[in-house]
Simulated scan of single mutants.
Amino acid sequence: MDSQDAVFRALADPTRREVLDLLFARDGQTVGEVCAAFDDRMSRFGVMKHLAVLTEADLVVPVKDGRTKRLHLNPVPIEQVANRWISKYAARFTAALVGLQQQVESDDTAEGSAS
């Protein structure tokens, strides 16, 4: 599987996005802390499956800390996807907005000199 495919697959699930949000809010949480955040909705096994997908996509980096495992957010794959996909499509839209702004400003200047 392509690394960007893995990122898209990981980001497609709302639970996995919620895990990323948890780690964004407080990076370096233990696996137990992340699992506890989902106690009312999901088993530890279910959370671990989501963590495996996030780890495979390199969005979460587990680091052993003695007998525990701390989870760290890795935003680099998301930035790579944004640069490859979002920026490319936003460039045309941004160029249109800059053109519109220039047109409005030139219209304002023309009206100001006409007064």
Results as ranks from 00 to 15, higher is better:
72 H>M: 07
18 E>D: 08
26 R>Q: 13
85 W>V: 10
57 A>S: 02
31 V>Q: 15
42 M>W: 00
30 T>Y: 06
22 L>S: 02
17 R>D: 02
55 T>P: 05
62 P>E: 00
49 K>Y: 08
53 V>P: 01
12 A>R: 11
106 S>R: 12
67 R>W: 08
19 V>R: 10
93 F>R: 15
2 D>P: 13
41 R>M: 07
83 N>T: 05
90 A>C: 04
6 A>D: 12
25 A>D: 08
86 I>K: 05
3 S>H: 15
29 Q>L: 14
59 L>M: 02
107 D>H: 12
46 G>E: 03
99 G>Q: 06
65 D>Q: 10
83 N>C: 04
5 D>P: 08
10 A>G: 01
78 I>M: 12
9 R>M: 13
15 T>F: 10
33 E>V: 01
1 M>Q: 05
11 L>F: 03
2 D>E: 14
50 H>C: 08
67 R>D: 14
73 L>V: 01
35 C>G: 05
99 G>E: 06
65 D>Y: 09
40 D>R: 00
49 K>W: 05
53 V>W: 00
108 D>N: 11
11 L>Q: 06
94 T>P: 00
88 K>A: 07
69 K>A: 08
38 F>Q: 01
52 A>K: 11
25 A>W: 05
8 F>V: 07
43 S>M: 03
92 R>F: 11
41 R>A: 08
105 E>Q: 11
79 E>M: 11
8 F>Y: 12
64 K>R: 15
54 L>P: 00
99 G>I: 07
98 V>W: 04
70 R>E: 14
56 E>V: 06
17 R>F: 00
35 C>P: 05
100 L>M: 13
104 V>H: 00
6 A>S: 14
14 P>Q: 10
55 T>M: 04
40 D>Q: 03
21 D>L: 15
24 F>N: 00
100 L>H: 05
98 V>T: 09
53 V>Q: 03
72 H>P: 02
25 A>E: 12
37 A>W: 02
5 D>A: 15
77 P>K: 04
96 A>Q: 12
16 R>C: 09
23 L>M: 06
3 S>P: 11
54 L>V: 01
1 M>F: 06
1 M>Y: 03
83 N>M: 02
88 K>P: 00
81 V>M: 13
115 S>F: 12
67 R>A: 11
44 R>S: 06
55 T>A: 03
56 E>G: 12
14 P>G: 10
55 T>E: 11
70 R>I: 13
98 V>D: 11
23 L>Y: 07
19 V>F: 04
33 E>Y: 04
67 R>G: 06
111 E>W: 08
103 Q>L: 11
19 V>P: 10
43 S>E: 08
68 T>P: 07
55 T>S: 07
97 L>G: 00
54 L>A: 02
87 S>W: 10
41 R>F: 09
51 L>A: 04
73 L>G: 01
68 T>S: 15
66 G>M: 05
96 A>P: 02
110 A>G: 03
4 Q>S: 14
16 R>D: 08
78 I>S: 09
73 L>N: 04
59 L>I: 02
50 H>A: 01
31 V>A: 14
3 S>I: 15
66 G>H: 07
17 R>E: 03
68 T>K: 15
24 F>E: 08
19 V>M: 15
75 P>G: 10
77 P>A: 03
102 Q>L: 13
12 A>K: 10
31 V>Y: 10
60 V>E: 01
77 P>G: 04
86 I>W: 11
101 Q>F: 08
101 Q>T: 14
48 M>W: 02
76 V>E: 08
63 V>N: 02
96 A>W: 10
